[in-house]
Amino acid sequence: MSQSNSYVIKFTVILTIVLGGLLSLASVLLRPIQQKSVEIDTKKQILGAVMSLEGKSNNDILSTYDAVIKSLVVDINGEEVKQDESGQPVIAEDVDVARMYKISPEKRKFPVFKYHKEGKEDDVLAYIFPVYGVGLWGPIWGFLALDTDFKTLKGVVFDHETETPGLGARITEGEVQNRFQNKKVYNESGELVSVTMLKGENNPSSRLDDHHVDGLSGATITAVGVNDMLKAYLKFYESYIKKAADGKIVAYIE
């Protein structure tokens, strides 16, 4: 059966309009739900750096977040940024870390999420910083929580877009993230050394000191990406960390 050219063109045009319309409709209808999912997911990750969220409903997560997190935005020098270039107030939750990654560090905005005791904003328990980098196939990101001694990792969460399931994608697993707990990002002499994932898995415990954690078998490039990402962002936040640490000491003396 052979059809005329005009029939073929008519058919494809109608098909394109119908299918395109269907997709646009789905996209418009589902967008509010998707945005809510993304917001919950981000807040879940921020909280996940400092507490276990197992068995918590989405509403619990949102209300817990409001109760224990106070956020601010700083620049590369650790100074708080309250307004953007056009005078609009800056909200830490709205800062797109992925987009910031593309501009030079001096111009970036760096969100800080202070985890405090419920209802007591001054009683800070941990400082949570977003991190962002590249894995094997695509972007990886996460949050790290620094204890109030400004040395010890309270916890980390990682996420990724396209790492290999079962290999690099394991960075999202609690078991892998727990390895970073209580590791130190500064050494005895106060130098930034970050925490490094070793190559290979089941390394002897003699190699796992304060600054090294066990690696991911079969996912060395993802692990290297994690290492680079942690180191880079700890460096970006170093001015702020130093300032916060000084402020803390002053507060103690008073």
């Binding site: 789905a26 589902l30 739900i33 998707q34 999912s37 997911d41």
Partner: peptide, 9 residues
């Protein structure tokens, strides 16, 4: 799209 809305993980 449906997975993104209802099963984000």
């Amino acid at each position: 799209e449906v997975l993104k809305a209802f099963a984000f993980d």
